[in-house]
Amino acid sequence: MQGHHNKQTNKLVRKLVVIVLAMFGFGFAMVPLYDVFCDITGLNGKTATEAAQINESGIDTDRTITVQFISRTAKEMPWEFRPEIAEIVVHPGETKIIKFYAKNNTLVDMLGQAVPSVAPGRAANYFKKIECFCFEQQFLSGQEEVWMPLQFYIDAEIPTDVNTLTLSYTLFDISLSDKASQASTPEETAIVES
């Protein structure tokens, strides 16, 4: 055996271990990379999580786009949640305000978070929110109700073959945002739930 501890072997092993570690890191790096990729391509229909600037590029009055609003509550979320109107026709560049109604149907205080999604996904980047209740968490005490504003415009650069755009909000219950406390002990969950 020509010395498996020789320098050459060690060097090669070290290189390979570096590749392994780099690829392990790459697995995690795919998370931000995916987000960047989605931002560019609108892959998953996620919209920006930060407010857009007020539109200054003018209104394209030659085109109209139908914007549909869908409100959903996650299945364990007992709130009422709906937009004031189901759809609206806008010109690209035109700023509109739509209000969403939310009511906490329970008797206890709860924290909600609305997560937006746009279909078709490639239009997501052209849906600009100047003000949105989805930028922050919503706190409602028992039986409290609220009208929440969404101020938006459609970027005039939006591809010409997009004529209908659907914005969906899913409202999640994040009162117990530390998920660990619920999931880790099945026995405990069983007692509480049953």
Binding site: E76, M77, P78, D173, L176, A183
Partner: peptide, 11 residues
């Protein structure tokens, strides 16, 4: 009526 979040129990 309201379900239990984090589990399969629906509202």
């Amino acid at each position: 009526v309201n379900g239990k979040s984090g589990t399969g129990m629906q509202a």
